[in-house]
């Protein structure tokens, strides 16, 4: 049982909403049966609630409703473009790392290849562009010897400094002057990737006699 009206009135709000349990509701009803002041208080509370429910429901003005529709439509379409951009980015992004790596690798490989293929040489500015060049005659020693009517054909080994290492007579008659000429003749050595190296050259010698 309640000690005062104040306690009952604390339950009025729940009571009118049907939130009181059965016992509390019965107690409130019992109290109201005998307490005129609380009955009046409850009636006035109900009257206030009724008036609140009678308040006109505010409706969105037509121009505002239209503005809302337009605003949301604009945002929606802006969003569609945004989503399209994101989808394209998402499609491209996974390829970016592999593609960049491939390009970078290609550039590095190209650089390495070019660096090893054409080394900078201060003393020989005319570096041949070919990867390998044969040796060639620079100057034969002016030594007279008889080559015979058929002439001489030699397979000559030239070292990296342009000197004759060895030679072999392929055809014709060898003579003592031949060795001297090979010893003092100068050759451009063969090159490999621009660097001088040993090489072989076939020489054909024929003595030419001019009668005055």
């Amino acid at each position: 049982m309640f000690e005062s009206c104040l306690e009952v009135r604390q339950l009025f709000s729940d009571y009118v909403d049907g939130q009181c349990d059965r016992e509390a509701s019965a107690a409130v009803r019992f109290h109201l049966r005998y307490c005129e002041a609380c009955r009046a208080a409850l009636d006035s509370l109900q009257a206030v609630r009724a008036e609140l429910k009678l308040l006109p429901h505010r409706r969105v003005p037509e121009d505002l409703a239209l503005r809302l529709r337009v605003q949301l439509s604009q945002r929606l379409h802006r969003n569609l473009l945004e989503r399209l951009r994101v989808r394209i980015e998402n499609a491209i992004e996974p390829l970016l790392v592999p593609a960049s790596t491939a390009v970078l690798t290609a550039v590095i490989c190209f650089g390495v290849l070019m660096a090893s293929g054409s080394p900078p040489r201060a003393n020989t500015p005319d570096v041949p562009l070919q990867l390998a060049t044969p040796p060639r005659v620079e100057a034969l020693a002016p030594i007279d010897f008889n080559t015979g009517d058929q002439g001489l054909t030699l397979l000559t080994h030239i070292d990296a400094s342009g000197r004759v290492l060895d030679y072999k007579v392929l055809s014709g008659q060898p003579s003592p002057g031949l060795a001297q000429m090979m010893l003092f003749s100068l050759f451009h050595p063969a090159t490999l990737f621009g660097k001088p190296t040993e090489g072989r050259i076939v020489l054909s010698l024929r003595r030419i006699t001019v009668r005055g």
Binding site: S44, L45, A47, V48, R49, E51, L52
Partner: peptide, 12 residues
Amino acid sequence: REMLRRRLGSIL
């Protein structure tokens, strides 16, 4: 609700 009731009760 009590505030509203106190203010409006006598009028309503």
